[in-house]
């Protein structure tokens, strides 16, 4: 019994030891970051699931409600892109979308940064939490914070 417990303990230590922290590190926050444009792109396939449609609906609602001025000025853009269509091949490759997903692309200091927002998938049943979470993220990007 002691041997079994010891083996389990060793396996756990081994498994934990093999893993490295899942820390997302991108460009640091800089006061000099000048955000030129933000793209909020929703990718989807020909056949969409319920959650895929909801994510598009909530994301579009968020940008239309809170960033109307930026949409009009062209500083922010929202698009829903069918990745199964040939004409969207380049933009799909640019973002590296692996399927239905929501991406935030930021043009800062002449460079392009992209990041998939996977957290939204946990909020498809809670519109308020979805909008709040996406707004917080977009505000961060607008302030030049790319973390």
């Amino acid at each position: 019994m002691v041997k079994v417990k010891l083996c389990i303990l060793l396996i756990i230590v081994f498994l934990v030891g093999c893993s490295t922290p899942n820390i997302v590190s991108e460009s640091p926050i800089s006061e000099n970051n000048i955000v030129e444009k933000i793209e909020v792109y929703h990718f989807h396939g020909e056949n969409q699931c319920f959650s895929c449609r909801t994510i598009k609906e909530f994301a579009e609602k968020t940008v239309n409600t809170h960033y109307q001025d930026l949409l009009e000025s062209g500083k922010m853009e929202f698009r829903s892109i069918n990745l199964d269509k040939f004409e969207n091949k380049d933009v799909t490759a640019k973002y590296g979308a692996t399927g239905s997903s929501l991406w935030i692309g930021t043009y800062v200091n002449g460079e392009f940064h992209k990041k998939e927002n996977t957290n939204v998938w946990y909020k498809v049943n809670d519109e308020e939490a979805f909008v709040s979470s996406l707004k917080t993220l977009l505000d961060k990007r607008l302030s030049g914070d790319l973390k």
Partner: peptide, 16 residues
Amino acid sequence: FCPFSAVLFFGMLIPI
């Protein structure tokens, strides 16, 4: 894979 399970595998697990 359907859209949601693809997100979980390719969008969340693979980056980790």
